[in-house]
C-alpha cells in the first residue's frame, strides 16, 4: 500500500506554542484517516500543514512520495472542506463548485457539467443557481464537499465538517461521507473531537494531545488497547485504573484500562472485589452502573434483563484478567 501523506518528525511552533510537536504519521492511500483530540491539540494545524497553509518549522512532509514543504497550496493535489465551509458569497452554487476548474482554465460547458455531476454526487441536484446565503447549514456543507471533490483530489481534508450540524443530520452525513469515501477511493483525512464519530467512521485514528500523537491505530485497537491514560480517558468510557489498584489485584504496578462491559457483578467469593453502587443509568439496551471500588470510581455496563442493584447497595465485582489492558505508561 502506498503512503499518501507522510509526516516525519514534523513540528509547527508558534513562538513558544508547540501547536504540532515532532509528529510522525503515515496516512495510507485510500484510507479514511481520523485525527482525534481535544480542542487545541493541533489537529487543525496538522491539516493546514498538509494543505500547505502552514509550513513546518522542522521535519519532512511528503505527499505521495514527493517532498511538499515548498509546494504552495494551489499546486498540491489536495483539497479541503473548511470548518466554516468558506463558500464564495458572490458566486452561485454552480460557480462555487466549478471554481477549481475555472481557475485551471477548463471550458465553461465542461465545468458546468462537472459541477452538476458533483452536486448530484452530494445529493444536491438543481441547487446550482442559488447563492450560498440561500442555503441551510447542511446544504452549504454539501456544496463545500462538491467544490472540493470536483477537482478529483488525491487527498481530501475535512476539518470538523459535521461540527455545525444537528445530531440527526450529523448521523446521516457520517454514513454518507463514509459511503462516498469508499466509492471514490479518495484518501480522507478527517478532523474531529468527537470520539464516537472517529470510531464509527475511520479506518485508522490518530489521537492528538498537546501537539503530539499519542497513539495511531484502528478504532478497535484504540478502543480496546489504549496505550496511555490520556487515550483511554479521551476515547472511551473505559475505566482507568491506577497502578496501586492494579498491583493489588493483578500483581503488576502499571496503569491499566478496563472496559465497562468487562466488569461483572458476582456473588461474594475468591477473586471478587467489594464495591458500592453510586449511581445507575438506564440506557435502553443496557444499564450503566457507577461503582465505588476501594475509593476509585469504576463504571460497569449490565446487559438488559439483569437485576439492577439499588444505589448505595454493597455488591461484588470481578473481571477476567485478559480484559484488563495494561498500558505502557508506568506507575
Amino acid at each position: 500500500m502506498t503512503t499518501a501523506v507522510a509526516f516525519e518528525k514534523i513540528s509547527r511552533h508558534f513562538g513558544t506554542v508547540k501547536a504540532v510537536d515532532a509528529v510522525d504519521l503515515d496516512i495510507r492511500e485510500g484510507e479514511f484517516f481520523a485525527m482525534l483530540g481535544p480542542s487545541g491539540s493541533g489537529k487543525t494545524t496538522c491539516l493546514r500543514l498538509i494543505a500547505g497553509f502552514e509550513r513546518p518549522t522542522a521535519g519532512r512532509l511528503s505527499i505521495f512520495g514527493e517532498r511538499a514543504e515548498d509546494v504552495p497550496p494551489y499546486r498540491r493535489n489536495v483539497n479541503t472542506v473548511f470548518q466554516d465551509y468558506a463558500l464564495f458569497p458572490h458566486l452561485n452554487v454552480t460557480d462555487n463548485v466549478a471554481y477549481g476548474l475555472m481557475v485551471k482554465g477548463v471550458a465553461k460547458e465542461e465545468r458546468r457539467r462537472a459541477a452538476d455531476a458533483a452536486l448530484e454526487l452530494v445529493k444536491l441536484p438543481g441547487y446550482g443557481a442559488r447563492r450560498p446565503g440561500q442555503l441551510s447549514g447542511g446544504q452549504r456543507q454539501r456544496v463545500a464537499l462538491a467544490r472540493a471533490l470536483v477537482n478529483r483530489p488525491k487527498v481530501l481534508l475535512l476539518d470538523e465538517p459535521l461540527g455545525a450540524l444537528d445530531l440527526k443530520l450529523r448521523e446521516n452525513m457520517q454514513e454518507e461521507l463514509k459511503a462516498l469515501q469508499k466509492s471514490l477511493g479518495i484518501t480522507f483525512v478527517f478532523v474531529t473531537h468527537d470520539q464516537g464519530e472517529a470510531l464509527s467512521m475511520a479506518d485508522r485514528i490518530a489521537v492528538f494531545d498537546h501537539g503530539k500523537v499519542k497513539q495511531v491505530g484502528t478504532p478497535e485497537e484504540i478502543y480496546k488497547t489504549p496505550n496511555s491514560r490520556f487515550v483511554a480517558d479521551f476515547v472511551g468510557s473505559s475505566n482507568v485504573l491506577p497502578p496501586d489498584f492494579v498491583e493489588r489485584h493483578v500483581g503488576e504496578k502499571r496503569w491499566a484500562s478496563l472496559r465497562p462491559e468487562s466488569v461483572r457483578l458476582v456473588a461474594e467469593g475468591p477473586g471478587a472485589i467489594a464495591a458500592t453502587v453510586i449511581s445507575s443509568a438506564y440506557l435502553g439496551g443496557t444499564t450503566r452502573l457507577g461503582l465505588d471500588v476501594e475509593g476509585h470510581r469504576i463504571n460497569a455496563v449490565l446487559p438488559a434483563g439483569e437485576p439492577c442493584p439499588a444505589d448505595g447497595k454493597p455488591v461484588h465485582i470481578s473481571f477476567a484478567r485478559d480484559d484488563l489492558h495494561l498500558m505502557d505508561e508506568a506507575g
Binding site: F53, Y74, N79, F82, A86, M102, A148
Partner: peptide, 25 residues
Amino acid sequence: GSLVEASMDLGADGFQTFRHVILPN
C-alpha cells in the same frame, strides 16, 4: 482568511485569487 485560503486550496494563485475572490467582494 478562509475565503482566500479556499481559493488557494482550489488551485488559484495569488493573482487569480485577487481577481476572482477579493476584487468582486
